[in-house]
Design a protein around this nucleic acid. Structure first.
Length: 558
RNA sequence: UGGGGUGUGGCCAAGUGGACUAAGGCAGCGGACUUUGAAUCCGCCAUUCGGAGGUUCGAAUCCUCCCACCCCAGCCA
């Protein structure tokens, strides 16, 4: 049932085994359970791809279920954003959009049952007292003085908690398990707390809200989930997950834990991302430097690339840190195949082609997808006497291996002509301001009848036809592979994570680009029209990722 | 120091006692090709599986001990 491209993993092994043993009647039913208290990031994408991907591969189903049990942190805004992001990633939960809050009534009834069975009690201890009574990792806890209340008294108190008779924090409902258990989660975990708070979905209907442990497993059970996949930190909760379900005597899904995603040069916790946004280190949740799905999307990452990435990194239980280059590989691979090519000069250097007629303009038809032989689409780029090339494509005193412009050297202007640099114009400070070149009229289209070879091919834009654009170049948000190293992530923020180029010169076909459109600027990288700031007449492009550059790499080694 | 986990090349990750003198991918390094120094293609890149013992004809896979790292003491999820 597994696809060839996906390597096996321990979760698939478990599912295979369950299928073999008919554990869940041959069903595979997963769920993605976000808490609507923030935006989704690439770590969530890993989980989403895992849950939906597994169901797809095994012919099962996946539910989207919001874990909305804490109204003090959760908001409708996040619910909407999360739904949009998962849809954008390309996954579909059909009619199975659920909320833990859908089950509040059932959860309440089950709590009553627990009380009647003598397995839960109302505790009047304060939060601080409960903490003291809980003991430590090495010292057992001790029983609350309210632990042995009668079922009748507990029932009465719990009903009054629900009725709103008591203030926040005054009482909780706790499971009665074992205060001396080495499993801290068994030391009478809190099931309900009082919160006079408006809930995004249930409004003011409730003033007691279930804790995660009381809501999650029961929700899984109600929905008939077979494999409840979560991250490693919930491993310690599994015994409680199972205990609660067993006390209720209801259907019991299997909880499986995997290691969350960590990426080099990236922070992933909601808390840290929130700090970056709140304190203005980035422009918002959708800042293209953010690892949020919205940020990556605005940057130019595609759903296909994210899914490919999730597939590449696999899933396991060992804590690990994935190299950012893997993500970059995934987006390059996708965009290389799909992105139309164009020419754009980021840092322009003017060239006057001295032997080219003053007013002449030629239009060259060049392939838009030269990497794809099956796609013959073309576009027109105008050529004239004055053009711009990349500053980095000229070197006055060039080494032998520099296959670009230099006095006396000939290069090919992509799709146009061969040109040879004859003069270098400088200002009073010795800066190169312009190049004078001659072109070979015989080399029209980029090849010469005499068959002579030109090692270098560079991109260019006709000066009088150029479209001016703002280009935003993004670099690592942090200077350290591990942003936490040393002083902490704020100290390691990269001051050059965003470089803005105000006046890049682009080929005229790019004037029509619409927000979200993506291109490969040949020899430079992949760029996406910014969805927020780009305006007709004043386009803004985000660099999604640069092309690999073995020349630069070679230079760096010297 | 109690409990629960994890340790396979620079990174991710297969592997569940015999065809493992350990898949695959990323990164790296060579080379071919090239109207993108891109892409593509070819080749190289762990005698070794946290360490030490042991069981076995045979161990990354089983046993013992040790070491390292992660998680748990929210009325967060």
């Amino acid at each position: 049932m597994t696809t060839d491209s996906t390597t096996s993993n321990f979760i698939r092994s478990i599912i295979d085994e369950d299928l073999k043993n008919n554990t869940y009647g041959g069903r595979v039913h997963t769920r993605f359970p976000p808490e609507p208290n923030g935006y989704l990031h690439i770590g969530h994408a890993k989980s989403i791809c895992l849950n939906f991907g597994l169901a797809e591969d095994y012919g099962g189903k996946t539910n989207l279920r919001f874990d909305d049990t804490n109204p003090v942190k959760e908001e409708q805004e996040y619910i909407d954003a999360i739904i949009e992001d998962i849809r954008w990633l390309g996954f579909d939960w059909e009619d199975r959009l659920f909320y833990a809050s859908d089950y509040f009534e059932q959860l309440y009834e089950w709590a009553v049952k627990l009380i009647k069975d003598g397995k839960a009690y109302v505790d009047d201890l304060s939060a601080e007292e409960i903490r003291e009574y809980r003991g430590t990792l090495t010292r057992p806890g001790k029983n609350s003085p309210y632990r042995d209340r009668s079922a009748a008294e507990n029932l009465d108190l719990f009903a009054r908690m629900k009725a709103g008779e008591f203030p926040d924090g005054s009482r909780v409902l706790r499971a009665k398990i074992d205060m001396s258990s080495p499993i801290i989660n068994f030391r009478d975990p809190v099931l309900y707390r009082i919160l006079h708070e408006t809930h995004p979905r249930t409004g003011n209907e409730w003033c007691i809200y279930p804790m995660y442990d009381w809501a999650h497993g029961q929700s899984d059970s109600i929905e008939g989930i077979t494999h409840s996949i979560c991250t490693l930190e919930f491993e310690n909760h599994r015994p409680l997950y199972e205990w609660l379900l067993e006390q209720l005597g209801v259907y019991k899904p299997k909880q499986i834990e995997f290691a969350r995603l960590n990426l080099t040069y990236t922070v992933m916790s909601k808390r840290k991302l929130l700090k970056l946004v709140k304190e203005g280190y980035v422009s918002g949740w959708d800042d293209p430097r953010m690892p949020t799905i919205r940020g990556l999307r605005r940057r130019g990452y595609t759903p296909a690339a994210m899914r490919k990435f999730a597939d590449m990194i696999g899933v396991a239980k060992a804590n690990s840190v994935v190299d950012l280059e893997m993500l970059e590989y995934a987006i390059r691979e996708d965009l290389n195949a799909s992105a139309p090519r164009a020419m754009g000069v980021l840092r322009p250097l003017k060239i006057t082609v001295s032997n080219y007629p003053e007013e002449m303009v030629e239009e060259f038809e060049v392939p838009t997808h030269p990497q794809d032989k099956s796609n013959t689409e073309t576009r027109v780029v105008p050529f004239s006497r004055e053009i711009y090339v990349e500053q980095s494509d000229f070197m006055e005193d060039a080494p032998r291996k520099f296959f670009r412009l230099s006095p006396g050297r000939e290069v090919r202007l992509l799709g146009a002509y061969y040109v040879t640099c004859t003069d270098v114009v400088k200002d009073e400070d010795d800066n190169v301001t312009e190049l004078i070149c001659t072109y070979d009229p015989e080399s029209r289209g980029g090849q010469s009848p005499d068959g002579r070879k030109v090692r270098g091919t560079i991109h260019w834009v006709s000066a009088r036809h150029a479209v001016q654009a703002e280009i935003r170049l993004y670099n690592h948000l942090f200077t350290k592979k591990n942003p936490e190293e040393g002083g902490g992530f704020i100290q390691n923020l990269n001051p050059n994570s965003l470089e803005i180029i105000e006046n890049a010169m682009l080929e005229p076909s790019l004037a029509e680009a619409k927000p979200g459109d993506q291109f490969q600027f040949m020899r430079q990288g992949y760029f996406a029209v910014d969805s927020v700031d780009s305006k007709p007449g004043k386009p803004v492009f985000n660099r999604t990722v640069s092309l690999r550059d073995s020349w630069k790499k070679q230079q760096g080694k010297k």
